[in-house]
Design a protein around this nucleic acid. Structure first.
Lengths: 393, 393
DNA sequence: TTTACTTAGTCCAATTTCGCACAAAGCGTG
DNA sequence: CACGCTTTGTGCGAAATTGGACTAAGTAAA
């Protein structure tokens, strides 16, 4: 498995621009680069030569001919270190190690408790990342950066967590900066739903420009891709639909202090509470999914209703945002009843104009979307930095 | 009055890039251009020289010193023709003539009937635009382009009107292409709410990146600025909130065939119908505004309720999109009760995180936003085209 | 196999762009 | 008003970039 090509929006023609062109998969040969970047072939040859001798690029055999001489293909040199993508949940952490070309080197999924607080958790994250690099058989065992997803809102500019209801002790913490100081390498943090959206987006390829990713797990969050890149909004809160009031739903008290928020009436926690109140003993969301698969009527109905409520909120968003694709991810998206509920609400409440080309799909990255997005985020950052200051090393 | 500086997102360094840098107000002197574009001062001097001798730019006196020699300021040469911005409503059309630097040359507001159909209306638009150019005392009386706003959804790519409920006879028409062929100059069409959003955005200046503009008139539409530029979504339908279902509202039948859409329960037409049903004889929306200003309880309450319903929908959007600014425009925005209703619903239903830096304002462009946006759209197109093919003339 | 045609990549003279030194012009201070 | 300091704009040799001719390497069809 490999991190899909980076998506590069602005095709600049600086030396680093060539690097990003290759990275994005937009150009694989010298002639390609010249065409896409609008540079003279000779210029491209000179720059590629420099990038190869500096170790950024390498030749990757011959491509297939399209009527003439076969191109000498180029690729990002993967052997210049590694980056780590981390996805923190409340009780679990997923890690993935990627080479600099985005190839997956290793994966780990470990138990933890986010309530241990930022210092202990992030220190541990650095340990695990370093251990994974050390254990890899990559030719260059240097950790070059860490990207991390967090189950709470990350503000912009600043990168601080603000009132993360599931993360006691983390309020006001700039997790990216802290991780950077603890690890000594560049580190970035973002909301987990945002990174899952990014991960799904890069996996889908470049043909999707406007996308909304819904993470339906214990709570319900959402990440937005607008015009090909992650959209954060003014304060970094874009996609935070957890506390949108849901009409015609039970007025359950929410962690935000109000009643009937989407989180409180359609999230995994709400589903558990509702089933337990009805006398169905369930330990966690996965057990609910199991019941529904076995045809348990109440579990199925509860999941479907959660889907309908989520879909009702998404319908307004689909009308407003007019995305090309709506991706359902998170644990609940594995339940057919939930997905059916979302689809039904959207097709009922949206204009045909907004839905006739809308693709509603279930995440294809499964549980890996978060770490893929995290890896892509930090790789993009590192390569972008290399464009600006001229050096990656 | 002058069209505010164009906003240029990507600062390319081509010869035309300099033109757009000056146009956007990002750089006013040679030294400025060199700094912003990252070009050598001598290169800038040479290109500016060429642009001046070709008539694109001209010198505009000396700027004020900031500690050293005073810069020789540059500006786009306005005397190279004119463009027309048109905003078509159901019964009215607004026209504005701008010079190539965005300066307002003339304005007209005329009665018409959109139901006369595309051929007659657009033919007439061309006549008016040509008449305005001929009547202007501009040194160069050439019409260079027309930008037009329409009260219906315009799809992308394609530019066709799709099921415009208030525009009988226009369904499936590519108004931009038709206008272009009738006038013989470049022409673009877009939805009126989008252009009002663009007009408001350029009037606000460059410090607002993410903005939502609500046009509350006979119906309710909305235009979106994301990352500094107009956001259209996948099919061009972004911002189309007319037919979002509104909870806890009367299940009025809507033109789209469903019940309780925002248009049907909060638009100007709905307010009129509601007041008439309650025995208040009102001819049009403006009369309702007058009643409310005179303290008519039912009119005020109806306007406020329309505002609350609109605000309820916008609250979800604010949570999702996290804009920096929400601008209320259209006739209803002139009613304090309506605006208060919107504000109240948003502050009630949104997270503090999404609203603590949100500015909710009433449009400052009033009725001119549409033509300003239309003018800016076509000017941007013409200057962008000039960058690509090297010539504006 | 030969021939015509297409694409990839290199070489090199002509041109463009850069970096820098320098001149022009203005501010603030003593 | 001279002097140091700052900013703007120009001139010129050095360096990078270009475009087109040319070579390399392939396909397709006669």
């Amino acid at each position: 498995m490999t991190l899909p090509p980076a998506s590069v929006s602005s095709h600049d023609s600086s030396p680093g621009g060539i690097l990003n062109l290759v990275r994005s998969g937009a150009s694989a040969s010298r002639a390609d680069i010249a065409r896409v970047a609008g540079l003279a072939p000779s210029t491209v040859a000179a720059r590629v030569e420099a990038l190869i001798s500096n170790g950024y690029l390498r030749e990757a055999g011959r491509g297939s001919s399209n009527g003439g001489r076969r191109p000498r293909q180029l690729e990002v040199n993967p052997s210049t270190g590694a980056v780590c993508g981390v996805d923190l949940g409340a009780r679990h952490a997923s890690f993935a190690l990627f080479d600099m070309a985005g190839g997956l080197l290793a994966e780990r999924r470990l138990e933890m408790d986010i309530a241990d607080g930022p210092d202990r958790i992030l220190g541990w994250v650095v340990e695990v990342a370093n251990a994974m690099v050390a254990a890899s058989d990559s030719p260059d065992r240097r950790l070059r950066g860490i990207g991390m997803g967090l189950p709470g809102p990350v503000d912009r500019p600043g990168g601080r967590l603000v009132s993360p209801s599931r993360m006691p002790g983390w309020n006001g913490v700039d997790a990216g900066a802290l991780l950077e100081s603890l690890s000594g390498v560049p580190a970035l943090a973002d909301n987990d739903a945002n990174l899952m959206a990014l991960g799904e987006h890069v996996s889908l390829g470049d043909d999707v420009d406007h996308m909304v990713f819904v993470k339906a797990g214990s709570g319900i969050g959402c990440g937005v891709i607008a015009s090909g890149s992650l959209y954060h909004g003014h304060r970094g809160m874009a996609g935070d639909i957890s506390h949108v009031p849901v009409p015609n739903a039970p007025q359950t008290l929410c962690s935000c202090g109000r009643w009937g928020c989407l989180d409180a009436v359609a999230g995994g926690a709400a589903i558990l509470a509702s089933l337990r109140a009805a006398g169905v003993p369930v330990a966690d969301a996965r057990e609910v999914l199991g019941l529904a698969e076995d045809g348990h009527p109440l579990a199925t109905q509860t999941l479907r209703e959660a889907g309908t409520r989520t879909g009702g909120v998404m319908a307004t968003i689909v009308n407003f945002f007019n995305p090309q694709r709506l991706v359902l991810g998170g644990t609940l998206s594995e339940a057919e009843a939930f997905v059916a509920g979302v689809r039904s609400a959207i097709y009922t409440e949206c204009l045909p104009l907004a839905t006739d080309q809308l693709e509603i799909t279930v995440s294809q990255t499964k549980t890996r979307g978060g770490v893929i997005g995290a890896g892509r985020m930090i790789l993009d950052h590192l390569f972008h930095a290399s464009v600006v200051n001229g050096s990656l090393r």
